[in-house]
Amino acid sequence: MAGPGVLTRYTTAAALARLADEGSRVALLLHVLAVGRGAAFGGLLIGALMVPHVLAAPLVGALADAVRRRRLLYVGGLLGFAAGVTGAALLADPVPAAAFVAAVLAGCCAPLLIGGLSSLLGELAGDRLPRAFGLDATSYSLAGIVGPALAAVLAGWAGGLWAVAALAFCCAIAAVIVVTLPVPDRAATVWGNRPGGALPAIWRRPPLAAVTIASTVSQLGLGALPIVAALLAAGLHDPALAGLTLSAFAVGNLISSLAYARLPLRRIRPETVVPAGLLIMTVPFAMLPIVDGRWSTLALFLLAGVINGPAFASLLVVRDREAPPETRTQVFTIGAGLKVTAAAAGVSVAGLATGHGTAVLLLAVAASQLVAGGLGAALLRRRRPAPRVSPALP
């Protein structure tokens, strides 16, 4: 069992690191606009920060699965992200090309902040694993709520550069806390796992394949929520509603993640919770086109968040249980990278499809949850492939 305070320290470090990841995008954009570089440059710089979240995930995961002193790797990754976003902000005006390089380097460290940290819980939490993943899901929800808001408040008060610096400092504090975590060293450095080598392992294990594919498809719809929220707010002539709806979804996530950490769903298999939750989440999104008014809209977004919390915590439990030891971190970083990719694709498609109306987009979000849950349920019924047997030698 994990020692006293280990989960508290881990959750604090994870929340601070993910807060920096979520908030730095807003802070960098606000800083770029303040120095007169324009929205186009800001968008490209944020893209330089985000794309490596996906492309570097297999490589970073393979490295974390191979090195002997993993704690040093994670500390280096956290400090590298902090230095990268700070460098991108400092260089954005005088040397824009170097700012892009710094943003890319920060993005290459980001997979350790997201899926990488989660992969450590199997060794840190002991027999409190369901509670640990509930708390881990809470750290994501807190970061999603607090990160962008903190970045905007600090930028308005002291400027975008100071907002970036404050978020980088949060990431540095997370690195200091990680130093105190009892992450065991490996007996020896293990090389040989190629980047992306976890993909066959994910497919060969039906529960892992089911939750990975289901959560990725779900993010195609959930990624579109910022566009949908803005359209809903415009339709109701209530500009503040755009931020409130997203906050309601995040608060619902936070509430149910905390509840899951306190009372995990031990009698239901986690791989069943994920597709079931996605299927149920179809309902609030499908109801949104037929309701009217601020409070009913907020209530349905809150409900969707409440449903999503246990599904996400259960997803982490399945990853931990099913991931092969030799590609464990890769499973987490690739899974997180696929979700980021799907969310980015979702928001891009939604932006191009705004002319079709809010109702159509809401039904598309609901349909993505329905398809995701159905795919997850179908993949769970797939039999695990039989192990290959080498032919007997004569």
Rank of each mutant, 00 (worst) to 15 (best):
Arg131Trp: 13
Thr216Glu: 00
Ala143Arg: 03
Ala14Pro: 04
Pro289Cys: 11
Pro264Met: 03
Thr272Phe: 04
Val35Ser: 10
Ala242Asp: 01
Ser215Trp: 00
Val291Ala: 07
Gly277Thr: 12
Val190Ala: 15
Glu322Ala: 10
Val32Gln: 08
Thr282Ile: 03
Val51Met: 09
Tyr260Cys: 06
Asp127Tyr: 06
Pro324Gly: 15
Leu302Trp: 00
Leu246Gln: 11
Leu363Val: 14
Gly115Ile: 14
Cys109Asp: 02
Leu393Ala: 15
Arg25Gly: 04
Val179Ala: 13
Pro96Ser: 11
Leu105Val: 15
Leu303Asp: 00
Pro184Ala: 15
Phe301Trp: 03
Gly76Thr: 13
Ala311Arg: 06
Ala17Cys: 01
Ala152His: 01
Arg319Cys: 07
Arg128Ala: 15
Val164Leu: 06
Ala172Ile: 02
Phe301Leu: 07
Arg321Gly: 09
Val32His: 07
Tyr74Ile: 13
Gln369Gly: 05
Ala14Ser: 11
Gly221Asp: 14
Pro111Asp: 08
Ile280Ser: 06
Leu265Asn: 06
Leu278Trp: 07
Gly252Glu: 00
Gly115Thr: 11
Leu363Lys: 04
Gly5Asp: 07
Pro130Met: 13
Pro325His: 12
Leu154Phe: 04
Leu225Met: 15
Pro226Asn: 14
His31Lys: 08
Gly335Met: 05
Cys170Val: 06
Gly346Arg: 12
Val104Ala: 10
Gly126Lys: 09
Leu161Pro: 02
Leu142Met: 09
Leu44Thr: 03
Val318Met: 05
Leu30Trp: 02
Ala364His: 02
Thr86Asp: 06
